[in-house]
Nucleic acid binder design. Structure first.
Length: 329
DNA sequence: AATAGGTACAACCGCCATAAA
DNA sequence: ATTTATGGCGGTTGTACCTAT
């Protein structure tokens, strides 16, 4: 195609009228071909070059929610074309996820059983994490020896959007009873944040809250069930007895409708309420079996998580472990 | 230097939705 | 109500380029 002709024609006459464009521009192409050439290559506002880490993470998150709806994904990445994103997914991201033990279609850990190994969780988490999260490792021990417990929290932290989730936590009567005054203060701090509020303070607060939760909740199982309840908006959680968190539940309900997902996500994004991510794959990957990895690992050796007497309080690792700051988008 | 295999990305194809006739 | 034109979309292919042997 003679690029100069089509570009000049479109810049002079604007987009549209693709059927007549080839004839008027003196091209031996069909209109459809010209439109694609313009949309995917010639358009002057197209961003070229390497995808940033932020863009990569956004694509992964959006793909988990939207699937192969490249045009919808592209709308969240300014100046990137759906074709470019599709190609980048197929040639880079899909492969990278597969290598880290994540099914690129379902975004769940792969393997003979549905139970992810600690390594898979860690890798998955890293694949989904922000640059800050990826770089910020536990201060007390290297990442390679981080416990599954920490990885669970790490992964959760990477997924949580602060405002709505933490507001949900705040409104959870069960948790408010469990959390200390200090923790609740953190929640209040977050709930009054505005869309213009810088990310880092929110993230730090989110991390502090999760750390506090990890310390205060009586057992890992209790914590897990509570978190599952919060994030799923379940109305019949038995162990934690939480009530439905309306705002979050509303989002989940709206997200269930593919046709309205984009609109719902857009609404929630505008209100700084929650990320566009669908948490259901995350929730399904929170398999109780995976908690068994806690047994016999490092400082948890010999402790059985099902044991109701086991408390995270005074656990030296949890006490001192600092979740990395989160990248909220 | 030649070749095979892999990779990246633009382009193509077929299907679908929608608006206009 | 039906047909046609048009544009949008996702899957796939073609090809240039790179790398290893």
């Amino acid at each position: 195609m003679r690029t100069k002709n089509s570009s000049a024609y479109i810049q002079e006459h604007g987009e549209g009228g693709w059927r007549t464009l080839p004839q008027k521009a003196g091209l031996q192409r069909c209109g459809k071909s010209c439109r694609l050439r313009w949309a995917n290559y010639l358009r002057p506002d197209i961003k070229r070059g390497e995808f940033s880490t932020e863009e990569e993470q956004k694509i992964i998150q959006l793909h988990a929610s939207l699937g192969n709806r490249w045009a919808a994904i592209a709308r969240h990445l300014p100046n990137r074309t759906d074709n470019e994103i599709k190609n980048y997914w197929n040639t880079h991201l899909k492969k990278r996820l597969a290598e880290t033990g994540i099914d690129p279609v379902t975004h769940k850990p792969v393997g003979p059983s549905s139970t992810p190994t600690a390594t898979a969780i860690s890798s998955c988490s890293a694949a989904h994490m922000s640059p800050q999260s990826e770089l910020a490792q536990p201060t007390l021990r290297p990442a390679a020896s981080a416990s599954t417990q920490a990885q669970l929290l790490n992964r959760l932290a990477a997924k949580l959007a602060p405002s709505k989730c933490l507001q949900a936590i705040k409104t959870s009567q069960n948790l408010v009873q469990v959390l200390s005054t200090e923790a609740e203060k953190d929640v209040v701090d977050v709930s009054i944040s505005t869309p213009d509020m810088p990310k880092r303070p929110i993230s730090s607060t989110s991390a502090r809250l999760l750390n506090t939760m990890a310390r205060r909740l009586t057992t890992p199982l209790h914590c897990l069930n509570t978190l599952k309840s919060i994030l799923s908006g379940s109305s019949d959680d038995q162990s934690a007895g939480n009530k439905v968190i309306e705002p979050y539940h509303d989002f989940m309900h709206r997200s269930a409708s593919a046709s309205s997902l984009s609109e719902a996500a857009s609404d929630m994004s505008r209100s700084n309420a929650i990320s566009t991510h669908d948490f259901s794959p995350l929730m399904e990957s929170f398999d109780l079996d995976m908690l068994k990895d806690w047994n016999g690992e490092d400082s948890h050796e010999g402790k059985v998580f099902e044991d109701a007497t086991y408390s995270w309080n005074n656990d030296p690792f949890i006490e001192n472990y600092q979740l990395p700051d989160l990248d909220i988008f």
